[in-house]
Structure formats: C-alpha cells, structure tokens
Design a protein around this nucleic acid. Structure first.
Length: 468
RNA sequence: GGUCCCAUCGUCUAGUGGUUUAGGACGUCGGCCUCUCACGCCGGUAACCCGGGUUCGAAUCCCGGUGGGAUCACCA
C-alpha cells in the first residue's frame, strides 16, 4: 500500500486559529499513525494580504502544539513557474481558454442571470472563440456542460454535483497569477498528496478541483471534509466568541496536549473515552469516527480536560511548563528544586498554568502584606495572637520542619487553647499566605521554611497589635 | 435566492433495527469528605427537531417539512 501523504496549507493572512489547528492536527495524526508524511505548505499567492508576521505566527503555533512536518514549508509564491507550466498544459489540451471579458461584463451577466431567477455565473461566451493571449485576458477552465461530478468523501459519504452548476471558473488572472483552486490542485499533484483532510467550507471547491485533476490526468486523492467549529451561538467561530488564535490558549495556561485532546475529541470519538495522551491519539485516531455535524467550542470542557492533563503530568514536567508563567509574574525561578516543591503543592488544585502561577504568589513574596481585606478582618483578630505566638514557639523548637513533624506542635496548641484544628489553621493560613485559600497548612510550612514562617507569624501578630 | 452539508441532554458525544426505563463527559444542583479552597466520592437534573412511511419492532432505514451551517470572486 502506498504511504499516506497529508498536508496542511494555511494562508498567512492572520494567526493560526482554532479551526485551522484542528485540521492541521487531523492531518498530522493521520500521517504519523500511518508512518506517512505530513507536509506544510504556505498558501501565499495573495501577496497583498500575506505577511511574514503571519507566517511566523503559524510556525509559533505549530511549535507550541508540537505538530512537526516532514516536508516544507513550501511557499506557493515561489512556485509560479510550475503553475505556468500546468496552465500551458490545460491550454494545450483544450481544457482552458483565454477570455477577454472584463469583470464588469461578467458582473452584468451575473445580474442578468439573477434577474431571470437563474444561478449567477459566467455565460461562457469566450469559450469557443479561440482567443489568443492579450494583456488583460484571463484563463478560464472549460467545465463540462453536462453530467455529474461526485465527491467521494470519507467523512460525509458521496456528494453529487450537477456539472451544469459549475461555470467556467478563472484559473489565471489577467495579471498572470494563478488562482486558488488551480494552485491547490497543482501542488497536491506534484507533492504527491493522496489524502486531503480539510474544513467543511471547502466542499464546494472540491468538484472544481476534481475536474482539474481529470483534465490534468492525475489520480484523485482521498477527500475528507471535517465539520466546522462553531461558537456558543452556533455561528462560525470568530473574534466575538473569544480567543481565536491558538497561541492565546497557550498564554491562558493550557497545556498543548490538553488542547489537542480537546480539539480531536470535538468531532471525533472513541467510545466514551474523554482523556487521551498524545500517544493514545496517535494510536486510536481514525477518519471513520469523525462526526458529520459541526461542534460548538466549549471553554469549560477544555478547562476541565486541562485540569486532567495537569494532574496526569509529573511535577517535573509541570515545572518546566509553568516556568514562563512564573517568570511573567516576576517570580525568581532560578531555584528549580524550590519551584518543583511549589508546583507539588499546587499540582492537583490548578486548572490552568495561569491559575497555578497566581496560586504561587505567596511563595515568592517577601511579605504577605497587604492581607486580603476580608481574610484579615475575619481571622486576624486580637484573640488569635496567643495562638500565633504559641504556635511559632512550638514550631521553632522542631529541628526538622517537615509536613509530618509539625502535627505535634499544632496538637499542643489545640490542647492549650481548647480549640479545634480549623480555628487554628485559618488564622495561620492568612498569616502565611495573606488569603483564606491555599494548599494545605503543613505543606505550606514545609515549603516556606522556618525563617519565613517565623517572620510571617511575627508580622501577623504585629499587624493585629497595630491595627487592632 | 440557487447549490451542498448537518440534526441525540445547555455543550461534546456513545448508540449502526430489538440487549435502552437512551449510556458517558463537561456544566448545573444537592450531599459526603475536610484545616480553607480545590481535588476526590455519592446522588439528582436534562436529549433522540416535527410529520409521514417501511417493519412484528426505529434514535437507528426511506420520504417530506422545519431549523442550523457552508458556499455562490480575476480571496484563499
């Protein structure tokens, strides 16, 4: 069997968005799991809208998602000679012709057809005129006048198009540049692409492309059109729905593996399984189980999945991923062993890396003040001064301040004061972290270390005495 | 408007004629656990778009309707 060759062909007119990332992912998974090739091709024939910044943004996003390509990136803007050659073939075989109608004239044809209640299209008036090349001529493809063109879609099944619906579309503009449907076909043929997985929005292009394949006497690839990703209001995902750029999700603290897990699961299933590692995806992904209907992008579900992936990761892996977020917050990340300890306490309680960075704040501040106003009001009252001073004393007497060794100190204070653990832990938590929400008290004390624990306990007492 | 696609809980989905009082996950609600918040655990809520067929039997097959989406360029 010939090996699978897929491609991802973004046009560099913006960042890589969610829908694009998903088709890239499907192509990548399918190629990789079949020991095939995944090719990256930049469709930059629209020189006006294409930018280098967009090309860079696409690379950046692909890198974050860890989608590597085996060939390319190819740039269509550098392949014009090839397109010209194929254009000539079409002309030579009589499958294309020059047309001198101006855009305005074609527009009139469309309007006229529309007025008659017909489908707006070019009427083919230059089709048999045998025109030669002139300055403002375009080249049109000679579309069959009858019959049907069938798209055999591996996801949607057979889709039948009447050829009468097709008009003689332009394959080469009057300025000599080739158009999209033509270059795609030439590229896919010459790059040996045999599997085309792309968005739903391309189905209407497919019959045109099939006609081109036939005229060029090339073998058809397997087509698979994946449904769109929609926003909450069921319309095409756009800026209104929040972040479009894939890298925005990186910046919001999502793990790439969680993100691809979510993207694949949106529209594809493997029974009831929700959580997939990258390796599992590579193993289990298939075209057959891709659904036919569009899916709504749901941030809550992504977040839940992200939490699962965070929990499944090791502390070492997480430390590596969260590092940039800590840096961003101004935390000193030089000491990796400390960072890992911090991450260890936040591991199962963070849904995103951003959340983790926020939760780590108190570990990296010299002082915990100013306290959260409500927390201080509720827990840092004169009545807790004896608790804090007594606990400080007892903790200080413990030579090795580990999670396990602290219990005795707390017990003694509980007995002395005749209070439950909760009554003691909360004020201590506020004293050590500044808030009422944090990891467990014992963990915090161990990670913070004796000096800072003592200083913060003392500071809290001082705070109570000066404000109280 | 023409053409094309789609249609199971709010959302992602399982389900391919009977094993289904339609299952799971996210969300949501309630409870338990507990040093706070989470996590975890337990439980509740909630769906086969409508109408006709086919069949002993339909979420599953067929037709029609409705609804949603895509696309109609010398853009990709």
């Amino acid at each position: 069997m010939e090996s699978i060759i897929t491609r991802f062909p973004p046009s560099p007119t913006g960042y890589l968005h969610v829908g694009g990332a998903r088709t890239a992912l499907f192509n990548w998974l399918y190629a990789k799991q079949n020991n095939g090739k995944f090719i990256l091709r930049i469709e930059d024939t629209d020189t006006v809208r294409s930018t280098q910044a967009s090309v860079d943004a696409i690379f950046e996003a692909m890198e974050w998602l860890e989608l590597d390509w085996d060939e390319g990136p190819f740039f269509q803007s550098q392949r014009f000679d090839l397109y010209r050659e194929y254009l000539q073939r079409l002309l030579n075989s009589g499958d294309a012709y020059y047309c001198t109608c101006t855009p305005e004239e074609v527009d009139v044809m469309r309007k006229k057809a529309m007025a008659l209640g017909e489908k707006p299209k070019y009427d083919g008036r230059c089709r048999e005129r045998g025109l030669l090349k002139t300055d403002n001529a375009v080249i049109r493809f000679k579309s069959p006048l009858k019959g049907t063109t069938v798209v055999e879609d591996v996801i949607k099944g057979n889709i039948v198009f009447q050829n009468t619906e097709q008009d003689d579309f332009v394959v080469c503009r009057s300025d000599g540049t080739p158009t999209y449907n033509f270059v795609v076909v030439v590229d896919d043929i010459t790059m040996g692409i045999n599997t085309v997985i792309r968005g739903d929005d391309h189905v209407m292009n497919t019959p045109k492309q099939i006609l081109l394949y036939r005229a060029l006497k090339a073998k058809l690839p397997v087509f698979g059109h994946v449904p769109m990703v929609l926003g909450k209001d069921k319309t095409r995902l756009s800026k209104r729905h929040g972040a479009m750029s894939v890298t925005a999700y990186r910046d919001m603290g999502y793990l790439p593996d969680a993100f691809i897990n979510y993207l694949v699961r949106l529209g594809w299933s493997h029974g009831d399984q929700e959580f997939f590692t990258r390796e599992e995806l590579l193993e289990k992904f298939n075209l057959k189980n891709i659904g036919k209907s569009a899916g709504v992008f749901d941030l809550d579900k992504l977040t839940a999945l992200n939490a699962d992936h965070i929990r499944a990761a090791t502390v070492t892996q997480l430390a590596l991923k969260v590092r940039p977020f800590f840096k961003e917050k101004g935390y000193d990340v030089a000491r990796n062993d400390y960072l890992e300890k911090v991450v260890g306490t936040l591991h199962t309680r963070s849904k995103t890396l951003v959340e983790m960075a926020e939760g780590a704040h108190f570990y990296y501040r010299d002082t915990v003040e100013p306290y959260d106003e409500k927390a201080a009001k509720k827990f840092l009252k004169p009545s807790v001064v004896p608790i804090l001073t007594s606990l400080a004393e007892k903790l200080d007497a413990i030579p090795d301040l580990k999670e396990k060794t602290q219990e005795g100190a707390f017990k003694k204070v509980m007995e002395e004061m005749g209070l439950g653990f909760g009554k003691i832990a909360q004020p201590v938590r506020v004293a050590l972290t500044g808030t009422t929400v944090s990891p467990g008290i014992f963990e915090i004390i161990e990670v913070l270390g004796r000096d800072r624990v003592m200083a913060r306990l003392r500071a809290a007492v001082e705070f109570i005495e000066t404000t109280g």
